[in-house]
Nucleic acid binder design. Sequence first.
DNA 1: ATAAAACCGGCATAAACCGGCATAAATGTA
DNA 2: TACATTTATGCCGGTTTATGCCGGTTTTAT
Lengths: 248, 248
Amino acid sequence: MLKKERHAFILQQLNIHNRVMSNDLLQRLAVSEDTIRRDLQELAEEGKLIKVHGGALSRSLHFTLSANDIYLPKEKKTIAQKAATLVQDGMVVLLSGGTTIRELIHHLAPELSATFITPSVPIALELMNHTGSEVIFIGNRLHKVAQIAIGAELTRQLASIQADVCLLGTNAIDSKAGITENEWEVAEVKKSMCQAARQVVALAISEKLNTVQPFQVCKASAVHAVVTEFEPHDERLAAYRSAGIQCI
Amino acid sequence: MLKKERHAFILQQLNIHNRVMSNDLLQRLAVSEDTIRRDLQELAEEGKLIKVHGGALSRSLHFTLSANDIYLPKEKKTIAQKAATLVQDGMVVLLSGGTTIRELIHHLAPELSATFITPSVPIALELMNHTGSEVIFIGNRLHKVAQIAIGAELTRQLASIQADVCLLGTNAIDSKAGITENEWEVAEVKKSMCQAARQVVALAISEKLNTVQPFQVCKASAVHAVVTEFEPHDERLAAYRSAGIQCI
DNA sequence: ATAAAACCGGCATAAACCGGCATAAATGTA
DNA sequence: TACATTTATGCCGGTTTATGCCGGTTTTAT
C-alpha cells in the first residue's frame, strides 16, 4: 500500500464518518502505529484534517465544534447589527431560528413596530421582550432538536402569508448551491419560508460561506442579499456579487 | 470515542437544550462520571459553558433559566409532583402556562411517552427537553405578557382536538365561582382549552384557593380535580369535595 | 437531620505521542 | 552498473495524555 493511497483512504473515511481512530486505521491498512501517526500529522499540516489524541476529525465537524463556540460576539454582533437595519416600521418579517437571529432581535430599535413571524420557539420567546411589535408563531408540531415547528400545518399557515422579507440564519451558503441545511425537516421549513416572502436575506458568518450541506433550502438565484461580517465590497464575496446577490 | 468528539457533542446538546446533566451525558457517551466532569471542567475553562452542580448550562440562556429556577416555592414542587402522576403513557395532555406547569414537566418520568399540547411558549421550550414525548404548539398570535398564544386561530385549532386531560396552572379558584382569570384574553384561551379536554385538572397553590378574578374560565362543576399542596383529605378542601371536585 | 449525589485531588495504567535511529526500497547520478 | 541520496517505514526509549478508580469532602434533596 502506497502512502498516497493511505492518505486517500484516510480522507475518504473522514468524509464518511467525520472521524478516524489511529488504532482502527493501523489495523485496516496493516501498517505500524507510527506510520499512521505520521500520515495524520502530514495531512494535518496540509490542513486536510484536525489531528487529535488517538485519531483525527474532519474539518467540517470541527466547524460545528467552533460554531458552537458561544464566544463569537464580534462577527455575530456585526451581522446582527447590519441585518437589523433592514427591518423597517410596518414590515412583516419572517425569522428563522439560530443564535444570529436571536442577536438580531437585541439590535432592533425598541420603538420599532413590525410584525414578526417565526417557527422557532426560542426566537418567539425572545421576540416577546420587544414591546413594539406583534409576534406570530407558525406551525404546531415541534422538532425537538431544532426547536422549530415542522410539518404540514406549518406549510399550510405559511401558504397564506406574503411577508416583506425573510431573514434566515444560515448553516451553509454557496454562490452556486445556494442555501443548504443538514437536516431535511429544517430545510423543508426554510424552503417554505423563502417562498412566503418577497425577499430572502441570508445571515451567514464568514466560515459558513462556500460550504454546502445535503439538503437545499433555495437556489442562489432566490437569495436577494447576504449579510456577513465582511465589508460589502470584500474580495471574498465576489462570487456572490457576480451571482447577483447583494452583499451587506 | 475521542475527547474532542465528546466535547463537540456536549456543546451541541447544550446549544439544543440549554442545559446538560452529567448523569445523562455519562450514559449516552458511555464514559465514567469523572471523565464527564473533567470534560465539563475543561469546556468551562475555555468559556464555552457554565458549569453547575450536576451538569452545565449554556452560556447564552443560563440567566433566563436560572432566574426562573431559583424561584420555586416548596409548595409548587409538591403540587407538580402529584400532578405529574396523572399523566400516563399514551395520553394527550393539554398544558397551560405558568411556573407550576413548568415544574410539573421536570417531574415527568423521562421514559414517559405522551403527546403534549400547549399554547405557552416557555412551556413548549421546556417540553422539548423531554425526549420521549411529542410536543405540539397551538395558536399563532402571541400575547407578550402571558407568553401564550391567543386569538381566533388558537380557538380554531383547539376545536379539532379532544385531549384526555387539561392541566391548568390556576390564578384563582373557588368552589362556587370556579376557575377565574384577571385577563380576558388569557381566560378565553383557558376556556377553549377546558372545552377541548375530557377532564379538567386545576393546579393551585393554597393561597389561590377561594379567590375570584373578573373573567371566568370554567364553572366549578366543570373541574374534575384540583391539585394543591394539602393532603387530599385536608379540612380546607371540604368545600371543593362537596362541590364534586376530586382533591389530590 | 440524614442520605444520596456530585465534587475534588491524587494515583495508576494503558494507550498514544515524540525524537531519533536503522533499514530497505526507490530514486538519482556518475 | 555501482554508488550516493532520498523516502518510507518500523522499532525503541522515554514522555505525555486520557481515563478510570478510590477516599474524603461538599452540596443537594428529602
